[in-house]
Design a protein around this nucleic acid. Structure first.
Lengths: 297, 297
DNA sequence: TTCACAATTCCATATTTTGGAATAATATTT
DNA sequence: AAATATTATTCCAAAATATGGAATTGTGAA
């Protein structure tokens, strides 16, 4: 690893991640690369930067101090390469780059953005939908929406709403196989699964009291939540899906909610934008609009 | 050029040099690399950083401003990699260990070191002269001088000067046996040989177009180039010796240069120092002084 | 205990870097 | 004015370096 800048970047990201794997995902590189970079940095510094074994990492005291300084200096150099877009920041005109989870984007964001676009036709909305969280994306956006709070001073964040997760199935499936009375009974019922793109594995279903359950045998699986939802509508199996995807279908009684008594505590959805530089008028406009339209009342 | 840190380093050095070639020498890289790095940086910045043609460079106004900031941030990052010196590295006092080839050491290095020692009497110069490969790491050398580039990222190297190799003999020997008109004729003339301490064999003489010739019968041989030179002065035979040993004697007409038309391409002499750890002030001082006094003009 | 998974190592493969050779352009010398 | 020398540049084959899949090791959880 001769590229010291990348070395620092990897280290700093790792220091803020819960595992090298997570850091690797955020940077869009392989875990091996993280291992290598950290090791090399440790060699250069002559200091252990992480306590780690095969199952756990923990940044050392020295590592933490180093990360603090390195982060700042890294930012300073990165800044040199940000081609200062000579954009007229005070116009209500121009591009606004937004990133959000796929399902939420389709169901909730699009309606609001379409509305906005009608009111302000000069806006050029650039929407990136992805369920992964990638640093590279964060660096190139004006506004982001994601689940979970972001502890990162480079961004300012606001809570938008809470997301409930429902276990649902189509009415005819329930007629055929009945309702599960407990989490365990899911093992004997047909289910569909949502694939985590990072790992290729299924997302575990979550329930109250931090209980989890991961489907083993599925009737259908996909990394696309909406494809899964279609499968569920057509009676392929039970699924756990977020409220914003389910609401319409529940109201139309095309889906039925089950296991309501063990539903997990709702997740928080946040909207955030980078702190960097002056915030162009148009970004503030879109940000404020999204906050007001998507917030819990 | 993916390594942005090196890109900045090259650009900053170029901005302070009178030519890309000079910058390349100072960094121990090729001029092509400088061209490439600057070009790439210009592409990234979308700005012309140098006015230049094939004979001249001139940093632009924008380039100069950029260099000013970049230099500072580069320094900040570099600093992260200088492991905090627990030893009194910041004094202009203390030992500096230098390794160099014997002949070069006597003729070229000593005058400069004596001068340095006068200016900075606190310096303790430890000079190791040897024509064998020295293990720079094990021997804890601070500064080394050797022929040929060292491709080892643990060191930073700079080209010092070029070394020409002359075939010479004393005037009276030439009167007696005449001048060789070709390399082959050396076989029938008295020669002296220089022993390679590593192998015990004679160093081959080198000529243009990669031709080599190894003495078989010699009148005198030694691993000490200056002993050989004395032999040559006293008419023992022809010898191939580096310019810095011959120059004075040639000027005084105590030696005569022959076979000038087949002299080899000059060799490059490099000075280098370990990258690792903090570079003590005194080492930097000596290094820079040697570079400035021993460089090709 | 077994299982699952993260960190790591190894290594073949892919990518990037490198500097020599050739070229082009211009300053300096003849 | 012509010749010479030098420098920036481009191109390309070779060398150096980075990359990630496969296998290994170790650990926490079931």
């Amino acid at each position: 690893m001769l590229n010291r800048l990348e070395m620092l970047r990897i280290f700093c990201t790792a220091a803020e991640s819960r595992s090298f794997k997570e850091a690797a995902n955020r940077l869009g590189i392989s875990p091996q690369a993280v291992t290598r970079a950290v090791k090399e940095l440790e060699r250069l510094q002559g200091e252990l930067l992480f306590h780690r074994n095969t199952r756990h990492i923990q940044v050392t005291l020295i590592g933490e101090k180093f990360a603090l300084i390195a982060k700042e200096r890294l930012r300073a150099v990165d800044e040199l390469f940000q081609t200062s877009a000579p954009d007229s920041g005070n116009e209500l005109q121009g591009r606004v780059r937004i990133a959000a989870p796929v399902g939420f984007g389709h169901k909730c964001l699009m309606p609001v953005l379409l509305e906005l676009s009608t009111i302000h036709p000069q806006l050029d909305i650039d929407l990136t939908l992805s369920d992964e969280r990638v640093d590279v994306v964060d660096e190139k956006i004006d506004i982001g929406i994601r689940i979970g709070f972001m502890r990162d001073s480079r961004f300012i964040a606001r809570q938008l709403t809470k997301i409930n997760l429902y276990v649902v199935a189509s009415p005819d499936l329930i007629n055929r196989v009945g309702r599960p009375a407990s989490i365990e009974e899911l093992n004997h019922l047909p289910v569909t699964g949502l694939v985590d793109r990072n790992t290729g594995k299924l997302w575990p279903w979550v329930f109250s009291m931090d209980r989890q359950w991961t489907p083993s045998i599925t009737r259908f699986r996909s990394a696309d939540a909406e494809a899964e939802l279609m499968g569920v509508q057509n009676g392929l199996g039970f699924a756990q899906i977020p409220d914003f995807l389910a609401q319409d279908l529940l109201r139309q009684e095309k889906l039925v909610r089950v296991l309501e008594e063990v539903e997990p505590v709702p997740w928080d959805l946040y909207i955030y934008r980078p702190q960097r530089g002056p915030v162009p008028q148009r970004v503030r406009l879109v940000f404020d609009h999204l906050v007001s339209r998507l917030s819990v009342r």
